[in-house]
Each structure stands twice: as structure tokens, then as C-alpha cells.
Amino acid sequence: MTGRVFRGLRAAGRNWTMSLGLLLLSGVALMALTASLLFPLSPYDMIGPPLQWPGQFDGAVLGTDALGRDIAAGIFYGARISLLVGFASVACALVFGVLIGAFAGYYGGWVDTVLMRVTELFQTIPQFMLAIVVVAILGASIGNTIVALAVVSWPAIARLVRGEFMVIRQRAYVQGCIVLGMSDLRIMFVQILPNAISGVTVMSTILIATAILMESALSFLGFGDPNVITWGTMIGMGRGNLRDAWYIITIPGLALLLTALALNLVGDGLNDLLNPRLRKRKAG
């Protein structure tokens, strides 16, 4: 009882940051959902005179870029790509990373050695370089960007899951399941995984933020899908006007910053919420 009261107070104290994060994130999601309703034209279409500052031209609240395209439309459509790429790539990385980590951590021995050497191989290559190489080989498209970001994200998940599995595997209840004659797969995914998932959840939110930033960087460098507009593309295209029209890159830059911040706040909040050490702490 005391524990519960404590926990409630502490969660309330910490969780306003998480609420802020969730609020920001749902804002971005709302932008993604309403993009085609609010901006029926393609964000690549010219809607007015070029280089209009925010508020200067009636048709574009956030102004226009060097080619007279609506920046607000770009932000809204860009939100779609950022969220899609972020969530999809981390989802793929999760499936792969959890599988590799679970097998390595549960079986140990040579299985662990082989799987972890492979994981380390991926980790030693700088992430962004690897992503560029993958996109360069597969070609620039949304699907390939997702693949590239999944390829660079999974090793971190695999290592985390492996560590959790190695610890939980030693618990008496897992030994008990073996004595009951439970199959390995059932022990791994029904008995151990639910107890290992909290750390993975927290890490996933941070990885989504990283993936979104990396996608922008890829687009900025021109490795993005040329058919869709993303925040990174907008920044890339606006950099020529940095001196006279800095708003062109500042607005998508802010959108990126707030999205990444929101995900980190949510991750932090989840960590407090799911961390068994904080949650289990009882008085007396």
C-alpha cells in the first residue's frame, strides 16, 4: 500500500515531462494524418511567389521557399515520412534484434559467440556510413531508407535483449520451466521475453528518434527518395538561402528538434514507469 502511494506521487512528479512528450508526438501524428486534407496540392507545387517570409504571403502561413513552394505543406507531409521511417525501421530492427538477442542470451556458448561476433561486426562500422552504403547499393526510395536504418539499429537491440536474457535465464522460475518440460521457444518468448521487454521499449523510443534524425541527414545529403518531401530534403534545399531566408531551414529544423525531443521525453518517462528497480522499491 505504502509503495503504491509513493509510486503514484513519484510518477505524477516525473510524468509531466512524459505527458509533454506524448502531446508533442500526437501533434506530429496529427500533422501527418491531416496533411492531404489541409494541403490538397502536392508539397512540390508552386503556390506563390518565392522567398516569402512567414506571414508575408496570405496563402502560406509559414512562408515559401526559393521556388515558391509552401513550407507549411512541406512540414505536414514531411511529418508523414519522418514517422513512417522512424517507426517502420525500428519495428524491423526490433523483430530482428529481439530474435538474435534472445537466441544468443538463452543458449549462450557457441551460439552466443557466433551471433555476437556478427552483431559486433555491424556495430564497428559507423552507423551513418553503413546507412549511406546500404542506400547507395539498394537505390534511393522510402522502402530502402527503412531497410538501411533497420540495418543500423538492430545491433543495439540485440545486445540489450541478450543481456536481459542472460540474467533472467538464471532465475529460478526459468529453471522451474525447464523442469516442467517446457519447450525452449515457449520459455524464451512466453516466459522470459515479457520480463525483458521494458528496457527494449525504452530503447526503441530513443532509436526511433535517432532513425528520424538519420533519415533527415540522408535526405539532406540527397540519398532520400526524390519523389517525397521530407524535413531533411527541405533543409538540404534551403541551405543556399541560409543568409537571406534562414526561416526555410529553421522551420523544418525546429520540427525535427521537437519530434526528437518528444521521443526522448517519452523514452525517459517510460524508463521511470517500467524500471523495476524504481517500481519495486518499497518502504520498510
Partner: peptide, 17 residues
């Protein structure tokens, strides 16, 4: 397995939470 079962020492870690 059904013929031989066991009870562990630690009542806290021996049940899936």
C-alpha cells in the same frame, strides 16, 4: 518430467512475476 518435480529455495525468483 511429470514424475519428478521440484520446489525451489527462493520464493521470490521462483515464480514468473
Amino acid at each position: 518430467r511429470p514424475q519428478m518435480q521440484c520446489v525451489f529455495q527462493d520464493p521470490f525468483s521462483s515464480l514468473n512475476p
